[in-house]
Amino acid sequence: MTITLRPGTTVMFTGDSITDCRRLDSEDGLGFGYPLRIAGEWGLRHPDRPVIWLNSGTGGHKVRDLEPRWQADVLDARPDVVSILVGVNDMGWHTLDPEGRVIPVEEFQAGYDRLLAPLAEAGTELILIEPFLLPIHGVVEAGDVRVGEEERKEWRADLGPKIQAVRELAGTYGAQLLAADRMFAELAATTAPEHWAEDGVHPTPAGHAALAAAWLRLVE
């Protein structure tokens, strides 16, 4: 079942830098990525059904970073729909916590579950977007990190179970799942992966457009 966006529906996008996309520098607070594209395309298709679009994504954030700001940034807005994209910072390059340990998938999933539980209790509709990693070749810069293919193989090994955790949570909560990792893998099979995300993590304009188009297929 798709999610119906009625006139006056409030949609909250949240997560990490992919959602943030310089939102604080944008006039409407939506940033310059897929949330803006979704809002624009929806307005074009449905001028008779205006929607309130909000963005609280924050660059670099992991699941554990979302938790302390969840009440103020998400729950207090009382959104009707919450769309979450988080997890890429919980893998390889960002997984060390202050004690120097890697974040295990069980901790990732439990923290994510704590974010979803109060939304489900409030009857909020949920859209969970899989974190993703494209198979870029050679050495690239991802944020302030230079990595090669071997490091990215390690990232993939760490991210895979966390993608599965997001899928399981979507099933548990009856959420819409945007299978972004699968989508980008299919796109990268016929077009250079750099076309969609130059560093394998942060989408290009084409990558943001692909996310927006997939998201809009989940609503009506």
Rank of each mutant, 00 (worst) to 15 (best):
D20K: 14
T58W: 06
H46L: 02
S26L: 08
L44W: 05
L44R: 15
T19S: 14
D20T: 13
G33H: 02
G57C: 03
R37E: 05
L24T: 14
G29F: 01
P35F: 04
P50M: 11
N55R: 10
P47T: 04
N55G: 06
T19P: 12
E27Q: 13
G40N: 02
N55D: 08
G31T: 05
H46W: 03
G29Y: 09
W53E: 14
R49L: 04
G57D: 04
L54H: 11
P47C: 09
G43W: 00
G31N: 10
W42N: 06
G31Y: 04
G60T: 02
E41K: 02
S26R: 11
D25A: 15
T19I: 15
I38K: 04
R23E: 11
R49E: 04
G40F: 06
W53M: 11
I52P: 01
G43V: 01
I52D: 13
F32P: 04
T19Q: 12
G33Q: 00
T58G: 07
G43I: 00
G33I: 08
G33V: 01
G57E: 02
D25M: 15
S26M: 05
L36D: 10
Y34K: 08
C21W: 10
P50I: 02
L44D: 07
I38Y: 11
D25C: 11
H46M: 01
T19A: 13
